[in-house]
Amino acid sequence: MRDDPDAEAPTVLVPVKVLEGQALPETLATFLAPADVVVLGYHVLPEQTPAEQASLQFEERAQAAVENIAHAFREAGGAAETRVAFTHDRDQTVERVATEAGATAILLPNPVGEVDDLLVAVRGAIDADRLAALVATLIGGGDQRVTVLGVAADGTDFDAEAAVADVRERLRVRGVAADRITTETAASERPVADIVARSGAFDAVVMGESEETLWSVLFGDETERVAEGAIAPVLVVRRGPATESTSG
């Protein structure tokens, strides 16, 4: 389905709170099967517990649980690799493993049924090429519908129309039929709340990694706030190593 048969499949990092019994819906495994998946089972410890101490007692259990999840991905026809980490800082671990694994996107899991309708939210400079490659890989062979939603925050000069058209074109080039793609744009005071509100009508959300701002450091990343508010799982597309931005 892809343009370039030699290109590697994009890698999706799936972080799972492995000792808290977090499970992944089977439908999600099916949805992600076309991509390479790295399942990262992690456990966050309070500062007073040495990571080594936790690993001595819970390592086997964590590895077995992660293997189980990876097995579900393999059953669904995908390639899945596993990592297990004990940490005091979830974000540091996820970011490190994502970099080491060369992950295109990170999954922020939420419950999901069959994925038929996909929301691609664009609300600032993103790596449109990586995003389009990921979406095309995931749904290229199926018949799911994609809605590309561009949201411009009030008072910014972000050209949502152009960005949405750009993503649409890239998806089409990568083999997603034009009649499966819907586009929408909106201007909003609170883009995150808007995306969360719209996400209710979709089975999964794909969006770009947001830039680190003072706000995001204090109150949490925008994408994380979307994931917390949304009912659907969110795939966060990471910035490429060299491409700072493409759209806008």
Binding site: A51, E52, S55, E59, E60, A62, Q63, R83, V84, A85, F86, T87, H88, D89, Q92, T93, R96, V97
Partner: peptide, 16 residues
Amino acid sequence: DETSVTEEGTELERTI
């Protein structure tokens, strides 16, 4: 610098 890895391949994140 960032992790140590146990015999079974589990990563222990260095965070301090």
